[in-house]
Amino acid sequence: MRPFPSVAAPWGRAAILSLILSLAAAAGAVAAPPPDRRLALTVDDLPWVPLPEVPTAEVLPGHRRLVAAVARAGVPVVGFVNEGKLEDRGRIDPERLQMLRDWRDAGAELGNHSYGHSDLHAVGLAAYQADILRGERQLKALTDEKSQPAPRWFRHPYLRAGRSVEDKAALQAFLAEHGYRIAPVTVDNADWIWAGAYLRLDQRGDARLKARLRRDYLRYMGAKLDYYERQSIALLGYNLPQVWLIHANLLNADAYGELIAMARKRGYRFVGLDEALRDRAYQRADAYLGPAGPSWLHRWAIGERKPPTFFAGEPETPDWVLNLAGVESE
């Protein structure tokens, strides 16, 4: 038998070992799984953001498009209700109450967002707690209609959750006593600014610029998903199941299906809020005591005293949209 040629010449052992390690590393990189991309979708300010300041008839076409899109998409969603929006001159408007039934019948779970979208930092804890209880009367009646469990999720208006450790603890105990769990937000954004600009274009009848705004909005929201995925990996070492916030407005009525498709194209799988919050990261304390309402990822990062550079690179609303909306900044 012809002897097998020696692999040591012309290669040295060190070079061969280096090649083997490089090939193994490359194989590992190829085989590495993608980040866990689960996403819980939540919609705030039901039944419709501009209520109660505008006539019900004015918002019904957009509302119907949005709930139809929710039903078509078939992904889990929790909608957070401001019961004050149901009233017209101090009385429940039957059409507005029906709007909540439409959400429920489209498959959405309804949560409490307080009666009057109260700002905890402005009204104080006692008034805030009273507004939460005032904001569950119609919700409980709606769940009773279908023999469903009572509302179980609460979302802070403005995502302002308290300026002291004592207030946060007292609010947590109050919510638990009344059967609520806080619904955090990790993928925060300024969709309300884009929606304000979109509404102005709709009122002008500017279809061309509306189409441009929707395209740019989808890119902006996609960039937000990418940013908070990177933030999660940088802070936690993995991408936690994210919680995404949007609002019940005309822009999302026209873009809802595209938002779902955009997230799926990025590899996201939609899950219920309860599944998302089973992740261990959500057991972390919310250490933020400032005046704003940032993402929970940033609250945890602030609690770990991350430097300002950690928060850099968050996508921003472009000036042309800010100007259309009449807003100076996010």
Results as ranks from 00 to 15, higher is better:
F270C: 12
E316D: 01
I246K: 07
F310S: 05
L250R: 15
W296I: 14
L245W: 09
D274I: 02
K265S: 14
R280E: 14
Y268A: 07
I260H: 08
L289Y: 10
I246Q: 10
A292N: 14
P318C: 05
G257E: 15
A292Q: 14
N249H: 02
E275Q: 08
T317Y: 11
G267F: 11
L245V: 15
H247N: 15
A301Y: 04
S295R: 04
P307K: 11
W296V: 13
F270P: 11
Q283A: 11
P241V: 08
I260M: 12
W296F: 15
K306H: 04
M262F: 00
A276S: 02
D279A: 00
F310P: 01
E304R: 14
T317W: 02
H247T: 12
A261I: 13
D319L: 11
V243P: 09
Q283V: 00
L277K: 10
R266T: 00
V271I: 12
L250Q: 15
L297N: 13
D319T: 15
R305S: 12
G257I: 09
F311C: 07
A312F: 07
Y268W: 06
R269I: 11
A301E: 06
G257L: 13
G313K: 08
W296A: 11
A287S: 10
R278F: 00
A292T: 14
A292R: 14
P307W: 11
N252P: 07
P315W: 09
K306M: 13
R284V: 13
P318R: 11
G313Q: 10
